[in-house]
């Protein structure tokens, strides 16, 4: 067959998560591919877990959707039992438990990020293998991350404004879309603060254009 429509669908992805003074920003491209075939060019890889916790998915689409569903179920149950919403750290640990338990059978790289009243904005990375790393500044993940991790480290500042942070994430995702064949489409974003979640969408022609 010429095109790989029969390959398992995966999100060879670019994910970015960054702290700013009021919370966190997460951003992702929107390409899901099956081999060389783009199965979805406007996918939403930022998946809601609770009202103020999101996860960014990379790896196998089936695996990460299943994990996200399972964690969302877990945390909803937790909230019902305890009467208060789960913290980002608790959510990240549920992710880590699942990712570690099934590390041999799954391909999943997840960033769990959100806002809780106890510790403010939180970003946790669960790379393939199932370890858990808390990130205090900025992190990128997925196949596009190799092109932008240095860029993010160089330009990230503590206590940025929301606009500065959104701008940085957009620039990073634009760069990765530009260079990484497995990333593409539009840039989706979510700004999570104590006031809730604000979703943003940057169409392909609204990305930052770079030469080269």
């Amino acid at each position: 067959m010429i095109a790989d429509v029969d390959e398992p669908i995966s999100t060879g992805t670019t994910l970015v998560a960054a702290h700013f003074k009021d919370g966190i920003v997460i951003a992702a491209d929107s390409r899901t591919s099956s081999g060389s075939y783009v199965a979805n060019r406007v996918a939403d890889k930022l998946t809601k877990i609770t009202d103020s916790i999101y996860c960014c998915r990379s790896g196998s689409a089936a695996d990460t959707q299943c994990i996200a569903d399972a964690v969302a179920y877990h945390l909803a149950f937790y909230e019902m039992q305890t009467g208060k919403p789960a913290t980002v750290e608790a959510a990240a640990n549920v992710f880590r438990n699942i990712c570690y338990k099934y590390r041999d059978d799954m391909v999943a790289g997840i960033i769990c990020a959100g806002y809780d009243d106890e510790r403010g904005g939180g970003i946790y990375s669960i790379p393939p293998g199932g370890c858990l790393v808390e990130e205090k500044r900025v992190i990128s993940a997925g196949s596009g991350s190799v092109f932008i991790s240095g860029f993010l480290d160089a330009l990230f500042k503590n206590n940025m404004s929301k606009e500065e942070c959104v701008d940085l994430c957009l620039k990073a995702v634009s760069l990765a879309i530009h260079k990484d064949t497995s990333s593409g489409g539009v840039c989706r974003m979510a700004v999570i603060t104590k006031d809730g979640v604000e979703r943003k969408l940057f169409l392909n022609n609204e990305l930052v254009q770079y030469e080269g």
Partner: peptide
């Protein structure tokens, strides 16, 4: 829904060997 269990929602979709 793909065979491995991933799903997506879109305004228009095709699947199968003739999807291209």
């Amino acid at each position: 829904i793909a065979p491995h269990g991933s799903s997506m929602e879109l305004p228009y979709l095709t699947m199968g060997s003739g999807s291209l």
